[in-house]
Amino acid sequence: MKLVPLGDKIVLKQLEAEETTKSGIVLPGQAKEKPQEAEVIAVGPGGIIDGKEVTMQVKAGDRVIYSKYAGTDVELDDEKFIIVKQNDILAIVEA
């Protein structure tokens, strides 16, 4: 199956949380903070949303930083995704 977002929605796949801190301390499962970095899987078409023209600024494959409590968690074919509005994307991570 494939998720196809509508309007200004974006499907993200969250990147894995760090297992250790920078100082080398190994974190147990509950102590790991949910990362705010994700890969863009699919992007909606944009268009007129709430009377305003919305042009999508990210594309599939981009790595992005998103708001901490944004989006809706979805599980499809045993994979977890997050669906967010474009407004919830804070930055694109460039290599």
Rank of each mutant, 00 (worst) to 15 (best):
G46R: 03
I25G: 03
R63H: 15
I65T: 13
D73H: 12
N87Y: 09
I48A: 06
I10E: 07
I65Q: 13
I65K: 10
K32R: 15
K52H: 10
E53V: 06
K9T: 07
G44I: 00
A17I: 05
L90D: 05
T72F: 11
I49P: 05
F81W: 01
Q14K: 12
G44L: 00
K2N: 13
I25H: 07
P28H: 06
V4D: 04
G29A: 14
A17S: 15
G46Q: 02
D50F: 12
V58F: 06
L15N: 14
Y69T: 10
N87A: 14
V64F: 01
V93E: 03
E19H: 12
K59I: 07
Y69A: 14
I48L: 08
I82H: 05
T72M: 13
E94N: 11
D88N: 11
A38H: 03
E75Y: 09
F81Y: 15
G47D: 08
V4T: 11
V64T: 01
K9L: 08
S67F: 04
I48G: 05
G61L: 03
V54A: 07
S23Q: 10
G29C: 00
I89M: 02
K52M: 12
Q30F: 13
Q36F: 09
D77P: 00
L27F: 06
E18H: 14
K59R: 10
T72E: 13
Q57A: 13
I82T: 10
S67A: 15
K59S: 13
Y66N: 00
M1I: 07
I89K: 02
I49M: 10
Q57E: 12
I48H: 05
V11L: 02
D88T: 04
I48K: 10
G46F: 02
P5C: 01
D62Y: 08
A38S: 04
V11I: 07
V54T: 03
V43M: 00
G51N: 09
L90W: 04
K34Y: 11
K32W: 07
Y66R: 00
D50R: 15
G24H: 04
G24A: 10
L3I: 15
E16G: 13
G47F: 03
G71Q: 01
E16L: 12
R63M: 14
M56V: 01
I41F: 05
I10M: 03
G61T: 02
D8R: 07
L15I: 07
E37D: 06
K13N: 04
Q30R: 11
E39T: 05
L6K: 14
S23D: 13
I10F: 08
Q86N: 02
T72G: 10
E75K: 10
I49E: 09
A42G: 06
A91D: 04
E18S: 15
N87I: 08
P5Y: 01
T20F: 14
Q57N: 11
